[in-house]
Simulated scan of single mutants.
Amino acid sequence: MNILVAPDKFRGSLEAAEVCDAMRDGILKAYPNANVTTIPLADGGEGTSKILTRQAKGTEVTVTVMDPLNRPIEAVYGLSEDKDVAFIEMAAASGLGLLAIEERNPLRTSTFGTGQLIADALDRGVKKIILGIGGSATTDGGMGMAEALGYSFKDSEGNTLLPSGQSLGNISSIIVRNVDQRIGLTSITVACDVTNPLYGPEGAAYVYGPQKGADPEMVATLDQGLENLAQVATRALGRDVSLVPGAGAAGGLGAGCMWFLDASLKDGISIVMEQSNVAVLVEKADLVITGEGKVDEQTLSGKVVKGLAGLCRSYNVPLAVVCGTLQITSEQAKAAGMTYAVSVLNRPMDLNAAQRDAYGLVSDATFQLMRLFFFNRDAISS
């Protein structure tokens, strides 16, 4: 009996590796002789760099960079064992989690620190960068990142602009003569799990600005600024990427990566599964068990569960999903390729209790699904 355990983290409760351990415990309680393979996954958001670094048998690098409000902090990224690939998360330098609630203001925040991480990786001679852009505190269209790599942004009078959301509307020209030439020699792939355009009603400012501290007036200012950036960058760099799915990710950093790094955007789970060689493990499995903190309609459009469901379907391997909160119907689960989906909440409890007891709840839910799954399989075969 070969069982593959491949979950995402349960945000606020368990890291993906801890979810793996809990699920393994539940499986072995039900079937002590099961052959269990565990591999933690991520969708491009927080935790992706650590997972990819671990799978590449790599090491972590600590660098002093500027946080979203231009204060020095220590940020970490990963290098593969052969030092050829860097695994970077923009959240490590420019993430919302680095700010207190009262500090959130996307007119002021910048992705400059993310650019510093990229520059450090280039200094170490990497040939490839995988950049996760989830969890941002910024809506600067990648302006800060670009400045850290040699781009310069000028207003109509030729003054150099400080990189921030507030400066977007004042950009009149982009100077490229001092850009780090190593960018053009490096393959850069961006892990992106949303499909929003850069600006407009479904763009970066209107959809994600409020969670970063923007009030309605700020949202309108940021949206106009991102549209201005699109017009100027298209003239300066020769292509308009503002409507490419994912351009609006991370406050427009998706578009910024395409413009300023010549990067390609790819959904995060596909990148992680490719780097982890998950397809080979799925093909050999009798059952795949995955999970994440919440399974809802957003899950159906590109999260870990969705990515695994497609892979399991192609190999005709059943997929069981364990989650903290289950907010899809049985019809939606079936249509998405899930054989079984269950919440770990087995009794009424508040969030604090659920998070505190998460390990045991995941283990128990996995035990129950194992007994149910193999009872049904045995009953059918007999």
Score class of each variant (00 low, 15 high):
residue 5 V to S: 08
residue 5 V to L: 08
residue 13 S to T: 11
residue 16 A to I: 04
residue 17 A to V: 09
residue 20 C to W: 07
residue 27 I to K: 01
residue 31 Y to T: 07
residue 34 A to H: 06
residue 39 I to Q: 12
residue 42 A to K: 01
residue 44 G to A: 09
residue 47 G to M: 04
residue 49 S to Q: 11
residue 50 K to E: 10
residue 55 Q to G: 06
residue 57 K to C: 12
residue 57 K to P: 00
residue 62 T to F: 08
residue 64 T to D: 13
residue 78 G to P: 04
residue 95 G to S: 12
residue 111 T to W: 05
residue 120 D to Q: 10
residue 123 D to L: 10
residue 124 R to Q: 15
residue 124 R to G: 00
residue 132 G to Q: 02
residue 133 I to C: 06
residue 137 A to C: 14
residue 142 G to T: 06
residue 161 L to W: 10
residue 162 L to P: 02
residue 169 G to T: 12
residue 171 I to Y: 07
residue 171 I to F: 04
residue 172 S to K: 10
residue 173 S to N: 13
residue 186 T to C: 15
residue 192 C to H: 03
residue 194 V to Q: 03
residue 196 N to L: 06
residue 201 P to Q: 12
residue 202 E to G: 01
residue 203 G to D: 09
residue 204 A to M: 01
residue 204 A to T: 01
residue 204 A to R: 00
residue 208 Y to M: 05
residue 211 Q to P: 05
residue 212 K to A: 06
residue 215 D to N: 15
residue 224 Q to Y: 04
residue 227 E to I: 00
residue 230 A to I: 01
residue 232 V to W: 01
residue 234 T to F: 02
residue 237 L to A: 05
residue 248 G to K: 04
residue 254 G to A: 07
residue 261 L to V: 06
residue 262 D to P: 00
residue 265 L to P: 08
residue 270 S to T: 14
residue 273 M to F: 11
residue 281 L to Y: 05
residue 281 L to M: 14
residue 297 E to Y: 01
residue 300 L to V: 01
residue 309 A to M: 08
residue 312 C to N: 10
residue 313 R to Q: 15
residue 314 S to G: 02
residue 329 T to P: 00
residue 331 E to V: 00
residue 342 V to C: 09
residue 347 R to W: 04
residue 351 L to F: 09
residue 360 G to N: 12
residue 363 S to I: 01
residue 366 T to R: 10
residue 366 T to K: 10
residue 367 F to A: 07
residue 370 M to D: 08
residue 375 F to V: 05
residue 375 F to Y: 13
residue 382 S to K: 13
